[in-house]
Simulated assay, not measured.
Amino acid sequence: MDGIWTGVRERVLALREAPGRTEVFGAESPRGGGHGFELLPVLTEAEVRAVERSLAVELPAEYRSFLLEVGAGGAGPDYGLFPLRPPGPDTPPSPEPPFRPELTAELESGEPERDDYADEAAFLAAYQLWDARADELHDALTDGTLCIGERGCAYYNLLVINGPHLGTVWEDVRAVGEGVVPLRLPGGTGPVPFARWYLNWLHHAERRAWDTAAGAPPRPRATDGAA
């Protein structure tokens, strides 16, 4: 895709040798693990098409080319990218409806207040309706998205795969009752396209991991390819 991912896999894998690699958030977890600047192998065109058939969508172009040229998961923003695995041949399709960010505003409109109702029965009836609708909204907020990574504290990164915001990254912050909101980079405005999000992380990870005393990173090794 116009060379946007040229050399990116090699740059990520080179960070395994960087002196400050453990200073990059998410590379190593205090609980053990972390992405360690590893990447899964890339997917084939046939595997990407199998994913698309299962979701009844065409994946966003930047993410699609990432899967084909960089990897199917691994090192990335926060605690890394979740693996994307092609479905088995007998897996039934599970079409994704469009993403509807306006549902967050409805969820945040607030629960009924007792003082707004003449009696307890009217309040309870209204509350039950609101509670049922809130459950529906929580379930529907992530329609049309792929959960592509964990931010920590039950926050997640979502990629829109269906709807007007196709290809942009959003934050799932339902854990604190704030629904799904646009991800914003410092000094910028959101929503943020997938490639900008990932390459912004890589730029800052390289600055953090390769301190000035250590000099520039070495040239990628030939064995650091996509195999």
Rank of each mutant, 00 (worst) to 15 (best):
E96I: 11
E58D: 09
L107F: 14
G7F: 03
R85F: 14
E106P: 12
N200C: 01
R151I: 09
I161M: 07
G7L: 05
R9P: 09
R21F: 05
T104M: 11
V51L: 15
T212W: 02
A154P: 02
L84R: 13
A134P: 01
L137A: 01
T44G: 12
N200F: 04
E52L: 08
R21K: 10
R64D: 09
R21A: 10
R114Y: 03
A14E: 13
R221Q: 08
Y156M: 09
P97E: 11
L141Y: 01
T189E: 14
E136Y: 00
Y127F: 14
A226G: 00
S29K: 08
E108L: 15
L199V: 01
G177W: 04
R133T: 06
T44M: 05
H35P: 00
R100G: 08
V180G: 09
P93K: 09
E150R: 09
A214S: 05
R16N: 08
L81C: 12
Y198T: 02
G33T: 04
H165I: 01
E120F: 11
V70G: 06
L158E: 13
V173K: 02
R11H: 02
R21W: 06
L13P: 06
F66C: 07
A209C: 05
P218Y: 00
D119C: 11
E111H: 05
W130K: 07
G33N: 02
V180I: 08
S109I: 01
R53D: 15
A122S: 15
R11K: 12
N162A: 14
V192H: 00
R100P: 08
H203Y: 02
G163E: 13
A18V: 01
L146K: 00
A121Y: 14
H138G: 09
R196Y: 04
E150M: 05
C153M: 10
E206K: 02
A105G: 15
A118V: 15
E23G: 14
P95N: 10
G187V: 04
L15Y: 02
A118R: 15
R207E: 12
L159N: 05
V48K: 04
A132V: 12
A209K: 00
V51K: 10
S94W: 12
E108N: 15
A105F: 08
P186D: 01
E47H: 06
P186W: 07
G26E: 08
I161V: 15
H203A: 09
L40K: 08
G36C: 00
G163W: 12
A105Q: 15
V181H: 02
L68S: 05
G110E: 04
A140R: 07
E106L: 10
L84P: 05
G34C: 03
D119M: 09
Y127S: 13
L202R: 06
G149L: 01
E10H: 09
